[in-house]
Design a protein around this nucleic acid. Sequence first.
DNA 1: AAGTTTCCCAACCGCCTAGTA
DNA 2: ATACTAGGCGGTTGGGAAACT
Length: 297
Amino acid sequence: MGRPPCCDKIGVKKGSWTPEEDIILVSYVQEHGPGNWRAVPATTGLRRCSKSCRLRWTNYLRPGIKRGSFTLQEEKMIIQLQALLGNKWAAIASYLPERTDNDIKNYWNTHLKKKLKKLQNGSIDQSKANSSNNNNLISSKSHSISRGQWEKRLQDDITTAKQALHDALSSENTPNGAAAVYASSTENIARLLKNWVKSTPDSAESKCSSNVSTTVDSVCSKEEDMSGAFESIFGFDNTLETSNSDEFSRSASPMVVGGEIKQEENSTSSLSMLENWLLDFEVKDYLTNVSFDEGLV
DNA sequence: AAGTTTCCCAACCGCCTAGTA
DNA sequence: ATACTAGGCGGTTGGGAAACT
């Protein structure tokens, strides 16, 4: 006999999450901590598959998630990490703790792929033009080194990165030391609720279901200062440097690589090394040389 | 203004691995 | 050892928003 089934397929709701479902999920996690997703639908009455709950939490509601456009630095890191690791979005995301693997994957598929292709085509065109104009004069920086030299350099870079990764992941900092910041997810909910309220003039109050706790009901009735309300209700605090909840501390943007979970804070120095390597690396230089067969269509 | 196309991203699907009974 | 599920991951898709004609 194995484990009991995760959830009934019958009656499971699909599609977009409503703000009230989000509130239920957040309040559950606040109380029980993330994990044991199987218990979420049963405990909360949410008509969602446990998998869906986990996904909603990790990709949207989890504290510390940064939304909005990616910075140039983030772009560079993604490009380099993708070149190094391939489409290992979870691994890549572990180096951008404020971004989810889903976000990175989406950004790669919708922006970076095209961008890189353009860059690559641009450099090919450029080098074609240059070679035709200047005979054998090699004007492109990437062509100033021979293929052998480039391969050597790439190998060195990979070795450097592997070392940095190893250093980062084998950091001996105390596993139970300073807890990672458990930033607030209230701003996510608040933002969501604001939009929700905007789009539904017939008051958010009416949408608050009865299976949400009374504290949540009170939130629903107050449109102003949602963020503050959530903070006070759920006890999240952006400025928290430590957390009393071990569950929460453990779940706060963990570095998950190869099945191991490391606190990001513990790896700061080593990560900086990797980041520096990633950011110092000339993206264009790399792109003009690297094969796009892998990871790019 | 209306219709069509393209873009974007949240969520789902299916596979794999680890864990449990 | 076996059967089975939860959790995790990467690929894909549906639908709303934005841009274009």
